[in-house]
Nucleic acid binder design. Structure first.
Lengths: 286, 286
DNA sequence: TTACGCAATTTCACATAGTGAAACTCATAT
DNA sequence: ATATGAGTTTCACTATGTGAAATTGCGTAA
């Protein structure tokens, strides 16, 4: 930590940076990288390398290294053609995850409503990484009820209403990643052909909801629909499960109406496709 | 880089991590920190320290250091009461900045419309850090026109329609920070008392737009209204500026109607308060 | 209450990994 | 062409991040 100037190739004397107080337990390079992200945002979402180096008082080379790392992780992107660094797509992905945190809380009243009207077991699910996970539920009141057990990972997205409702709105690469575990057969109704699933998802998109007719559990029929935000990104889904003994066409139609009403309202809460597409959905329904 | 085990307090032999290929020009600690953020998101927005350490295969201590830095910068927060790390508020702020990037593009047609109907100079502005900045404009067609010069930082948020329109919807601490430069007097109409400005902003909120009656430039009257997204966060504002010779009550009402129609439509595009509050705004207007 | 076990936090010595001056390359203006 | 300035890469040095272990703190059981 001497102040002596040691002339040498590639490295002149560095001013001794004494880390004090709050800086004690924070990692310099990480702190600087995050500072860069903040600075890009302050500059209106786009900035040149030199601008950033000046505003942050960082060495331009250090800036460049840090930005390279941020780019690798998608937190920052280079504007094609222009010499600009901009906030990356990962930021938007993360903000979706932020909103998902209070999805269960916001969904609670809707789950109760669907449960009250249909009388069936109702689940809330969401995507977590490559997995479909159930986050909350309301038990059916009937003596004969569907009990798919506790909350947690759904192993069969291709064979459940939740899975199909959400898969339908994903970009293809993400859909394939979630299906990477394969499409195992559970019942004679299970869809095990990829092309067949693609067609089924097309119908889900058109109708706005998905139906599982004993494709996972024999004797259990589910209706599910996705919750989507402003960008159309899937943030979750709601489903109702009925034993097939109760699943008349009429009862399924009731579940479908309640479920889609709930997901439409929730989607609207998250800024998603709400009223405007509701009529279209209703017009096409069944 | 020897494989020799050097037993010593506080540090056992570290496996030699050979950085290769793409990892060559990325900074380890930053990369790991960003990996942690991604991982929290994958885990549904919340995770414990041990979970994170396991999933990322990072030393729990390293994790802790990295998380401390992320917390310091607001990218991650600790869930109060619980032993959980969650995505922080900064992420949402950043996503707003992301959307702002294409604000000028999306606003362009509206600026043209307001310009066409009112015939006056029209500006688009946004918040960048602590500053109010004009991003785009359309010149008036009249021989006598308002020419506030080029785009760039607005030095007097308290004395302009843009400034007041946006300040009105900010949380108090942010509003105070933007006003930190003081409230300089420009004309005899300039609001220089903080309490008076607070009252003025209250009216802006109620009416949905702001008017600058020669508060900044003598002989210039502006009408502005904020563009807000789903969370109600201000993402920009549009204003029209007329020379006072043309600013009859009728003309101001026309500008007000055009401006609020434009910001209402744009707000809706960003998932903000659109149709639902429009009627209320119109009912109260002037 | 006290004791237990596990999770979170802090410490600390070492050597790797980050830093920044300078060299180099590329793009744009003159 | 040639100059200017921005962006990128290199490289030597040591400040900085790392991780095993010690410490502290929390939650739960007895």
């Amino acid at each position: 930590m001497s102040a002596t100037v040691l002339p040498g190739p590639g490295n002149e004397a560095r001013p001794p940076v004494v880390r004090s107080g709050a800086e004690r337990n924070s990692i310099q390079s990480v702190d600087r990288a995050l500072l860069l992200v903040d600075t890009i945002a302050e500059l209106g979402g786009e900035a040149t390398l030199t601008e950033l180096a000046n505003r942050t008082s960082l060495n331009i080379s250090t800036c460049h290294h840090l930005l390279a790392t941020l780019i690798k992780r998608g937190f920052v992107m280079k504007v094609p053609g222009k010499r600009l660094y901009a906030l990356g797509g990962r930021i938007l992905h993360l903000s979706h995850a932020c909103l998902q945190v209070d999805l269960p809380r916001r969904a609670q009243p809707y789950l109760e409503a669907v449960n009250r009207v249909t009388g069936e077991t109702v689940h809330l699910a969401a995507l977590q990484g490559d997995a479909v996970v159930t986050l909350a539920m309301r038990e059916a009141r009937h003596a004969v009820r569907v009990d798919t057990g506790k909350l947690g990972k759904i192993e069969a997205p291709h064979a459940t209403a939740h899975g199909k409702a959400m898969l339908a709105w994903l970009p293809e690469d993400e859909m394939r990643r979630i299906l990477a575990h394969g499409m195992k057969r559970f019942t004679e109704n299970t869809i095990t052909e990829f092309s067949e699933l693609v067609e089924a998802l097309r119908i889900v998109r058109r109708k706005g909801y998905a139906v599982d007719r004993e494709e996972f559990l024999p004797g259990v029929i589910c209706v599910g629909s996705a919750i989507r935000d402003q960008a159309g990104t899937v943030i979750g889904s709601i489903s109702a499960s009925a034993p097939s003994m109760r699943a008349t066409d009429e009862h399924i139609a009731l579940m479908r109406d309640e479920i889609t009403a709930a997901t439409r309202a929730l989607s609207a809460e998250f800024g998603g496709p709400g009223a405007q597409s509701a009529d279209r959905q209703r017009a096409i329904a069944v």
